[in-house]
Structures are given as structure tokens and as C-alpha cells.
Design a binder for these strands. Structure first.
Lengths: 342, 342
DNA sequence: TTCACCAGTCAAAACGTTAAGGTTGATATT
DNA sequence: AATATCAACCTTAACGTTTTGACTGGTGAA
């Protein structure tokens, strides 16, 4: 492995000069810099990251916690999110450290990663309404970016989509088609995004004077099986749902199966709008009928989260690093007018 | 951040003694070791990873390449695989470095990670029949574990499932029900796993004297839309398929939709067996009808891959680190007898 | 008594880089 | 002519570990 010393010997200059030449300092002659760069290129020099990390005290690495039991939404979403982070980081020479954790040792894992100087910043997801991780990170002063939001007085950097609007827009679109019984297949109640979506959903209802019926909401992790079960429940109520809002493509698939199993046709007997985080292996436009969705790219969110982390480390104030993305609605074929109720 | 020096001062011993006590050397008095451990615990000492890495020359980190354009099967699978790696690594204090790459710079990224001393070993997936990455890693002498297999004379550590058997068992199960026209929804032809599955499929056919019909195989990335399109093609041949083998749950979903769209019933008009890598958000047993599958856990594979990497670094010979897992068949409701052909 | 040995400890060097401050010799300023 | 300034380079010290080899004082053997 070729190191600074080798380059220095080769070029008859000091190690310092080589280092400063490569790092773009102004007190090195342009001719020398050119010679150094050429030699570095020729010999395939790459700085030893660990030496650099030790002396600078910066790990040049961003951490991301990853649950070992893939329980929550995480599952497929995280792959896309990760790719987005990867895109952003590879442009800026930062590394990504995955921090695996199980059940309840997440904060313990954070401590370990922080104390051993492995990371400069952290990206945290799967955010709860009241999330102890946020308090902890604040307390120890580790820079962090939240994917989502939480209830706290403390300032923090985040990237989130407007989940209130997801619930609101979806509900409004269905209400305008005459639907009055709209089932909400939502995420776990303790998660902020699920709370926000319900808030939007309820606002749409109340603006139109329609009472909220708790029997028409389901809180569970977003999985195929839950979408199926909850939809079956919604469709067999005394006053069954005529429309559904699905929290993700995963439970939308289950919902579609439940609709079919009941002998109903989506877009005719039952309408549906799903939220799509964009998986490449499951496209709403290729469903039959094509699924109307609210859309936001998980990958883009990962990309942005990483960018925010880097800007944070570059000293940009937290206030500039709080972003909420509007979601767009893609109207397709799964929404139709409410059927006449007997 | 508390360091060795702090502990040494606190305990009135040398830095060396603290280090050796903590690292379990035999030449330190048990009483001293106890005092040191207690103090380390009390003050929350964690070794600075970067200093340790620098002096030992080992990064204590395993790398995993991650495509930025999530094109191939990778997508959802990688999340499970990652979790498995995470499980294994967290038990052994190793870190996991994600190495993002796009299109064709994968080997370039490897070089960078290796030369800068970021990783001790690499796990590589999405393996091609002839894979330049394997040759490269051999050449530079970086320890690596392959998830899958490739055609090469060189020895290497791997974890793979018996894909030939996946193709064979699935085909046999369908042939025994009288099916003679079996569509194979396979992965890209240049990938080893897809080649192996086709090999098994063809062996089953030829053992029964049934000619292989290329019109009944489809090679494409495993996505919903491809499953749909290929199934439509298979079902509209002059002599249509009466059964399908789907390479993953992703294109199985598309296939199911195509079957329904054609007004056919799975398990009755068309039988199907899919390979299931086990996603928690998509369960074959909760499909209607429940899907018969061959099963292998992507998560378990990730776990094992990481274990192999660690054993490799511990000096275990490559020959001991080559594992092929048998897959099991889960019979459910999507396979029925071949319908009478007009 | 002398020597060898051993358990337990330590000082010093090394890992490869960055950063602080000093040293040149040449040019500009007075 | 003396002094200040400056570009360009260098020496040295750090970063926090691990590791090597040396040093103790005590014990047992000769």
C-alpha cells in the first residue's frame, strides 16, 4: 500500500508538502502540486482512512440504524432509502455505517458507535411521536437527521413528507366521488407519520361534516396480511366501507386480494388510493385496474437525508435543514364514484 | 471521551497494562485486571476504533456493495440480507460498510475501499456466470464471500442455495400433476442462479422425455411487471402453459394478476410454484389461493455470509467455507392437476 | 551466596496522517 | 542598506491505540 512517505521520497519533498498538495492548500506551488498529483495517480495512492480519522477526529462516516427484527415498515422501504443515501454519500466521499440493533438496544448501539468514534452523524428513521432517541442524541450532542418528525421542543434537522396532506388529499379525492365510508389502513398508532395521516383524514371528514368512525381505521404494521384482514373487516361492517386508503403498496396488495375475495371489483364497488414509496418491483400503474396513489420517493428521501447530514457537519444551522415534501397524487383507475347504498 | 491514558492515570498503572488487561493478555495480574475492568465500566471507556484500526491495520469492518440503480433482484431482497448480516456482525463487534456503486464503477469502488483500508473482507452478491469481480478480488488478495456461485477454477468461500434443485423440484412437482407445458419466469440469463434453475427445470423435463420449449422461458429481472407480461405471453401461446414456476414473490404477484386478468383461476386452470426468499410483508400463505413455494431465507443467508467472512478472517481455509443449502418445498393450494387439453 | 527464572509491569516505538509553527531565500519597501 | 513581506517548503508534534522488548523484585535451585 503506497503512502505519503513513499510519494515524498519519490518526489524529494516532505510528507507535509505532499499532504498539503493533495488537500488543496494554497501554500504549495502549482507546479509541485501537479507533480504530486501525477505521482499519486500513477502509484495509485489512497489516503489511509484510519490514520486520517484518528488525527482529524472525524470518522467521515454517517450511521444508519437498522433493526434486526424487521418489524415495522422498514423492511422493503429501507433498501430504497439506503440506495438514496448511497447515491448522495458516494458523491462526497462519506461512508455509510449500518448499525444493527435488536428490540431495545438501539440507544446502547448508538452509544457504542459514538464513543468509539465510528460516526460523525446519524440518520434515524421509524420515528415515534415521542421518541427517546431524539432526546438522547440531543443530550450527547451527536449531529443527526431525522427521517420523519416527532413531538419535541428541541430543534433538529429533518426530511419528511407531508403526511397530513397524504391523508387529507386521499380522503378529499374519495369524498368528492361521493364516498362516505372510507377505511384507513394506517401504520402503527405510535408512529408520527400514522398520526399525521389520520389527522389529515379526519380534517377532510370534518370539513364536510362527516363523523369519524373509529371502526374504519386500522393501525398495524404495513404488511400484506394486515391489509387483507383489515379490508375484510371494513367490508363486512353493517355499514361497509366503499373506499379505502392504504398506507403502503404492501397492504394495498392485501387489500386488493380482500376486495377480489369478496367478489367485488376495485374502482367499481370499492375504490382505493394507496401511498406509494416507489418500489421498482411493484408498480401501481401495472396493477389491474391501475392503482391511484399518492407518491413520494423513498430513494429521494434517503438522498436528501444524507445531504442534510453532510450540510449539518459542514456547520449549516439546523433551521435551514428542515424540509417537508409535498406529495403528488397520481390518478389512475382504482377510484370510481360511490355506489348507491341500499 | 475517556481514553486509555485516563484509565491509566486513574489507576496508577501504565497505559500498556490497561490495554493488556482489557484485551485479556495473560501477563496481567487478575486483581489488576478486575480493577481495570471496573474502572473502564464505570467511566464508560470504549476504545477509539480509528486508533485501533490504524495500529492493527485491520478495519474490523466488512464491506457490502450496494447498487445505486436498484436494477436487479437486489431491491427488496437486500434489506433482508442486510438484516441477516447485521445480526451476525453485531454479535462479533464487526462493522458493516455499505459500498454504493453505480452502473460500472463497482470494481473501482472496491479498489478505493481496499486501498484506503476501510474493509477487511467483502461480501459480494448478484453473481454472474463469469464474474470479473471474483477475478479481481482474487488478484488483489482481498478476502471475500460470495453469495451465490460462479464459474471459476479459483477457490472461494460461498453460501448459496441449491438453485438447480429449485428448478428441478418445482418442475417435478408440476409434472407429477400432469402438467406438460410449464412456463419458467426466470432471472436474467447471465446470472448463475437463473442458469442453475433452468438446468434443474430441463433435467426434470428430459428425465420424462418432454422436449424443452424456449418459448416457455422468460429471462428478466424479477419484477411485478415482468411477471405479468411473461405470464400473459405464456398463456396466449398456441399451446399455452398450464403451469408456472416463478422466480420470486415479486414476479409471482404479476403472474397472479395475469392469470386473473385472463379470467383463469390459479390452482385450477393454471398452477404455480414460486420461489420465496421470505419477505415479512408478502406472505405466500396468505395469498388466495395460498401459494405453493420453494423457500429459502434471505436473512439466514446474510447471517451465514457474515459468519463465513469472519471465519475467513480468522484464518479458516476456504475449503471449509463453501456451503450449499437445500431448499424446502411448501405445498399449498396453487398447484392442481393439469386441466384436460382440448 | 549467586544465579536463573518468572510474574507482573512499564517505557518507547510504531501505525499514517494532519496541523502548528518555523525556516528559507527572494522580492518589495523604506 | 536594512528591513519587512511573502511564497514555498520543512520539522515536529500530535491523534489513541497496540506491540516490542526491557525492567523490576521475589522465589527457588545450585
Amino acid at each position: 500500500m503506497v503512502k505519503l512517505k513513499d510519494l515524498a521520497r519519490e518526489l524529494n519533498v516532505s510528507i507535509t508538502t505532499v499532504s498539503r498538495a493533495l488537500n488543496g492548500f494554497s501554500d504549495v506551488n502549482e507546479a509541485t502540486r501537479a507533480r504530486v498529483s501525477a505521482a499519486a495517480e500513477r502509484l495509485g495512492y489512497r489516503p489511509n482512512m484510519n490514520a486520517r480519522r484518528l488525527v482529524t477526529g472525524r470518522a467521515h462516516t454517517i450511521g444508519l440504524a437498522n433493526p434486526s427484527e424487521s418489524s415495522l415498515i422498514h423492511e422493503a422501504h429501507i433498501a430504497e432509502f439506503l440506495s438514496g443515501i448511497g447515491e448522495a454519500l458516494s458523491e462526497s466521499e462519506y461512508d455509510l455505517l449500518l448499525i444493527p440493533f435488536k428490540q431495545d438496544d438501539e440507544i446502547e448501539r448508538y452509544k457504542r458507535a459514538i464513543a468509539s468514534n465510528r460516526i460523525d452523524a446519524l440518520i434515524v428513521g421509524s420515528i415515534l411521536l415521542h421518541d427517546p432517541r431524539i432526546d438522547f442524541l440531543h443530550k450527547v450532542g451527536m449531529p443527526f437527521v431525522v427521517h420523519g418528525r416527532t413531538e419535541t421542543e428541541l430543534p433538529y434537522a429533518f426530511i419528511d413528507i407531508d403526511n397530513e396532506s397524504v391523508g387529507y388529499k386521499s380522503a378529499v379525492a374519495l369524498l368528492e366521488k361521493g364516498h362516505r365510508r372510507i377505511g384507513l389502513l394506517n401504520g402503527p398508532a405510535e408512529m408520527t407519520f400514522a398520526r399525521d395521516r389520520e389527522l389529515g383524514y379526519r380534517r377532510a371528514l370534518s370539513e364536510r361534516g362527516i363523523p369519524f368512525d373509529p371502526a374504519l381505521t386500522d393501525n398495524a404494521m404495513m404488511a400484506d396480511a394486515h391489509g387483507f384482514a383489515a379490508t375484510q373487516r371494513f367490508l363486512t361492517l353493517k355499514k361497509p366501507a366503499t373506499a379505502l386508503i392504504a398506507g403502503s403498496m404492501a397492504n394495498a396488495i392485501g387489500a386488493i386480494r380482500a376486495i377480489r375475495t369478496a367478489g367485488l371489483i376495485m374502482g367499481r364497488h370499492v375504490s382505493m388510493i394507496a401511498h406509494d414509496d416507489i418500489f421498482h418491483f411493484l408498480k401501481p400503474e401495472s396493477m389491474v385496474p391501475a392503482l391511484t396513489t399518492t407518491t413520494s420517493s423513498m430513494r429521494a428521501a434517503g438522498h436528501r437525508a444524507a445531504e442534510i447530514a453532510i450540510r449539518l457537519l459542514d456547520g449549516e444551522p439546523v433551521e435551514n435543514l428542515q424540509q417537508v415534501w409535498e406529495v403528488e397524487m397520481n390518478e389512475r383507475e382504482s377510484v370510481g364514484p360511490a355506489p348507491d347504498q341500499g
